[in-house]
């Protein structure tokens, strides 16, 4: 039985006079990867920001049946929602180790679990392991993306919002990152994946949503979207 983890109802976000989201509704099923695709400025990042409490919104967002409207961003993290923001949001003045430790801020009573997850992240990204004592501003773009995902694992959320994890990465590195997202998903974490790279995102996902100008224009099983002529023409370039 499919379990709805996050339910978005009639979600609108405005920045001053500009409407970034105009009444979006969809559900995210527990354990699945949901891809959110669309052109630049379609409102994908705004949607993630609304879910993680970074921007105010109209409408309803229910997480495990609880409306999170008006909750502070750090409280939403404590409910189990982790947001890997656009541009990665690495704290450059902190070392790699400190970035990972900081992400486990709320897990004070679970030092063993934190240690285990830290070792797991280092195992997953050996290149971070070589650089734990280094200031993270000195990392390459790919390494910063690994660190951002590593941090999400340290937060141990049940739902991870990923904003363009492949941005600025070489195809090989992007492949590597998508492989790890798949692994995280198989471990039972629910993922909302925002991507420009629609083909890779839909291949990886169970479910897909297409956004245009702040509205949801298409929604369905990822495999069906991959075959949909409208998607193929607009986003897959075939």
């Amino acid at each position: 039985m499919a379990n709805v983890l996050l339910s978005i109802k009639n979600l609108s976000v405005s920045y001053g006079n500009i409407k970034a989201l105009r009444g979006i509704s969809f559900d995210i099923i527990e354990g699945q990867i949901t891809a959110l695709i669309g052109a630049n400025g379609a409102g994908k990042s705004s949607l993630l920001r609304a879910v993680s409490g970074m921007v105010k919104f109209d409408g309803e967002i229910n997480y495990r049946g609880r409306n999170i409207k008006g909750m502070a961003a750090h409280k939403i993290v404590s409910m189990g929602i982790t947001h890997v923001p656009e541009g990665r949001g690495i704290f450059g003045s902190l070392t790699v180790r400190e970035n990972l430790t900081l992400a486990a801020w709320l897990r004070r009573n679970d030092p063993e679990g934190v240690k285990r997850d830290y070792e797991h992240v280092i195992e997953l990204f050996p290149r971070l392991g070589e650089r734990v004592g280094q200031l993270s501003a000195t990392l390459s773009g790919g390494e910063q993306q690994m660190l951002a995902i590593g941090r999400a694992l340290m937060s141990k959320g049940d739902l991870i919002l990923l904003d363009e994890p492949s941005m600025g990465l070489s195809p090989v590195l992007a492949d590597e990152i998508f492989g790890i997202i798949d692994e995280i998903s198989k471990a039972g974490v629910t993922i909302l994946l925002v991507e420009q790279n629609a083909f890779m995102a839909l291949q990886l996902s169970h479910h897909g949503c297409v956004m245009e100008n702040g509205e949801l224009t298409l929604e369905g099983a990822a495999a069906e979207l991959l075959d949909d002529p409208r998607v193929r023409q607009a986003y897959l370039g075939v």
Partner: peptide, 24 residues
Amino acid sequence: TRYGMAMRALAWDIKTLPLMGVSV
């Protein structure tokens, strides 16, 4: 300390810090 770490992180990026579960 962890609070010092949070202060340094806040100085770098005040918008991202809450996403780590820290109250700014």
